[in-house]
Structure formats: C-alpha cells, structure tokens
C-alpha cells in the first residue's frame, strides 16, 4: 500500500530536522508508541500499540534511518511484528524551506501488512495510517514551539 503526503511545519528546516531525529520526541509524537530506543547507529527499537478497526495489538520492531542528508532528506525503514500480524515498509522524507520560516515535509512510501491485521483490518488501514500520520506530524509541529 502506498502512503504519500505533505505537511507544513511552522518552523525552520534545521529545527524540524532536529526534532525528527530525536527519538524521545519522535516517541511522544508517534501515536501508541510505548518505547523507542536507539540501539545502534541510526537504528531504533521500539514498541507500538496499534488499533485498526477490530484488530488491536502491540507491534515490536525496528526503525532504521538511512540515506541521511541532513537537514534535507532521509529514508525510514520500519519492520514490526506482533500477535496480530506484521508490517513493514519504507519511505522517503524530504524537507524543503518554505516562505515565512516554515518547512514543507514531503513523504512517500510503501507499507506491507500481513496476518490478522491485513485480513480483518485492511479496509481501515488506509484511513488509520493517514490519521496516525496526521496526529504524529501535528505533535511534532507542537514540539517545535517548545
């Protein structure tokens, strides 16, 4: 499944970059994230509580940052496994300066899901993932102001 979109942060690009590279802030921003720890260079491990329609469960997994060009772009690769199935995906994030001290984030990627979460939750996955991304980016934007 394709995930694509853009978001405008009210802050300068360097600041946005700082925030998305800070696991603690990232953990508070990603809805349902129970923990997110740096375990190696650009590699995080964490747990995330996800509910998609009738399917709810904890996914444990890895988040890997690669192709990093600070403070401009990076690639995120996610792999999560839980009792309700698995998800994996990767996406590119690009930041661009905008007028008036704001930053435009463009993201695009592919996500694959399997198991219960796919067979029962697929219908809602698109909507849920969009809302999670919206919520997460909103939180990050709030973090900018702190």
């Amino acid at each position: 499944m394709k995930i694509e979109g853009e978001y405008t942060f009210t802050g300068p690009r360097e600041k946005v970059w700082e925030i998305i590279r800070d696991p603690e802030i990232l953990a508070t921003a990603l809805p349902g994230t129970k923990k997110l720890e740096l375990v190696g260079e650009n590699e995080y491990e964490g747990e995330m509580q996800v509910r998609i329609g009738p399917v709810a469960g904890v996914f444990g997994g890895k988040l890997i940052v690669s192709n990093e060009v600070a403070p401009e772009s990076l690639t995120l690769t996610v792999e999560g496994v839980g009792k309700v199935g698995f998800l994996k995906g990767s996406g590119d994030i690009v930041l661009r300066d905008q007028d008036g001290n704001s930053t435009l984030m463009k993201y695009s990627g592919e996500v694959q899901i399997g198991g219960k979460v796919a067979s029962v939750g697929q219908r809602l996955f698109d909507a849920v993932s969009k809302s999670m991304i919206r919520q997460g980016l909103g939180k990050l934007n709030e973090a900018l102001r702190v």
Binding site: A118, S119, V120, R123
Partner: peptide
C-alpha cells in the same frame, strides 16, 4: 494483495 494476503477474511468484508 500482491503478497498473498487475503484482505477480506471476514463476513463484514
């Protein structure tokens, strides 16, 4: 789907 996952495995779908 292209990964062999059945996307409508319930009587709701």
């Amino acid at each position: 789907d292209e990964n062999g996952q059945l996307l409508n495995a319930s009587l709701a779908d």
